[in-house]
Computed example of a mutant assay.
Amino acid sequence: MAKDAGEGGEFAAKDYADPPPAALVDAAELGRWSLYRAAIAEFVATLLFLYVTVATVIGYKHQSDPNLSPAAACAGVGILGIAWAFGGMIFILVYCTAGISGGHINPAVTFGLLLARKVSLVRALLYMVAQCLGAVCGVGLVKGFQKAFFVRYGGGANELAAGYSKGTGLAAEIIGTFVLVYTVFSATDPKRSARDSHVPVLAPLPIGFAVFMVHLATIPITGTGINPARSFGAAVIYNQDKAWDDQWIFWAGPFIGAAIAAAYHQYVLRAGAVKALSSFRSFNA
């Protein structure tokens, strides 16, 4: 009977183990091929992400250009299609690279995981450099293939839309990135994986959907950044004043949103603050 009870409670009390916190500075990582292989994976994934998504944006703007055809306003994939391009590519690329680099493809995600001690500072910095370089190369490919359209339709660069204040744009980026990074933490939480092991949930799927939903909400405001590498790569290749003037929004907003998401998940949902307080009280008892 005890055995049956144990089997019945298998999913309710399944053992799990949190990985130990990553070292803040792990110089030994610099001598491991796995680090550079992961950075290359982040570079290639971000390149592909920017190539497909920015090409989608440019293609949509060209197809819906009313100067080309009276019926063009109804042509193209629309904002819904653009959101699907971003969310779908994140789903695909996280699925492909998660086993190599963790599938960050976004400096804000890397920053949030650094704050939660999931990656070391060395790995985080190398990832961010690889992501930014990959973004520049990806947008560069789009310009190389569609040079005339690229310049005419804004290069896929993130800019604050007319009628919105910088504060509104910053808030949109903070909230949007919070949704994304919160989803990343929840989808990859080892406790959740153990508890819900009988429910096959593919982690890249909710992450891709989070990107999709945030794009639907914020494309009209900022064009949706929530990824500093995406905004930086487009700004470098497009290289116009407006894109650079608003660039700080697409770095400050995502990093603030990622920090809030990391703190919320680690200290509230995972009760990190309560555990730390209990340890402090026990030490001083």
Rank of each mutant, 00 (worst) to 15 (best):
I105Q: 05
G99M: 13
H104I: 07
S101F: 14
C96I: 14
F91L: 15
I92H: 00
I105W: 02
T97N: 13
N106W: 10
C96D: 05
L93N: 08
A98P: 00
I92L: 15
S101I: 10
A98C: 01
C96Y: 04
F86R: 01
I90T: 03
A98I: 11
A116V: 01
N106S: 08
I100Q: 07
T110G: 08
M89E: 13
F111C: 01
L113D: 07
T110F: 07
T110N: 10
A98K: 06
A98Q: 13
A116L: 01
F86V: 09
G99E: 10
G102R: 06
G99K: 12
L115C: 12
I105R: 01
A116M: 03
F111T: 07
G87L: 13
A98M: 12
L113C: 12
T97D: 09
F91M: 15
F91R: 04
G112S: 08
L115Y: 06
L113H: 12
G87A: 13
I90G: 00
G112V: 12
H104C: 05
L115H: 07
A116I: 02
G112T: 09
V119G: 06
I100R: 07
S120D: 09
P107K: 05
M89W: 05
G99Q: 09
A108T: 10
L115D: 07
G112Q: 05
P107N: 04
G87F: 12
V119K: 09
H104A: 10
I105M: 11
H104D: 06
Y95L: 14
R117A: 13
H104S: 09
I105E: 01
T110M: 11
V109L: 14
A116F: 01
S101Q: 13
G99P: 10
V119W: 11
L114K: 02
L114T: 02
G87S: 12
M89P: 02
T97L: 03
A108D: 04
G112W: 07
C96H: 00
F111W: 15
G112D: 11
S101R: 11
G102A: 13
M89F: 11
P107G: 06
G99C: 13
L114P: 04
N106R: 13
G87T: 11
L114D: 02
A108L: 09
L113F: 15
L93G: 04
F111S: 07
A116E: 07
